[in-house]
Amino acid sequence: MLIAMNALDIPMASLPAMRNDTAASAPQVPCPAPAAPAPGSDLPVLALATLKRTAAFLKPAVLVSHLKTLTERGETLLRGLRGAEALTGNSGTLASSAHVLAGSAGMFGFERLAFVACRFETAVQSGAIELPDLAKDLSAALEVSIHEMRCFIPAAG
């Protein structure tokens, strides 16, 4: 827990308790390199400075609550993207979810997710042909970002 706090360099009082040691070191783990570099893959999964900056304005309990909400949003979008007819019958809803996530994830430093979600949203609105590829990129960004988010949420009980 102490390692994580030092890594984030956030005042002790403003940080939620970390779940475990894996979580503590998670922000420093390099992102898995995709087979073909996709736009945004060079961005950090989590920009610690941004998370630190946002955390400074919030009470620890509020920060945890927001991160939980963010995780739930990410998981919902991921499930939607994995649906059988995700990009044909449901793309508008997915784009709306991606839009909300782009703003909120970026605010907490999840830069790669924010970038890819924004590209996905724009692609849905413009009917871009590369939508399936962008959906894959978004799913990948969601998976790795959700993993990071969970590290900051204390285990229930």
Binding site: T54, F57, L58, V62, H66, V100
Partner: peptide, 11 residues
């Protein structure tokens, strides 16, 4: 989005 609104207002 209430979350974004809360954080912005707090800041």
């Amino acid at each position: 989005d209430v979350m974004q609104s809360d954080v912005l207002a707090a800041m």
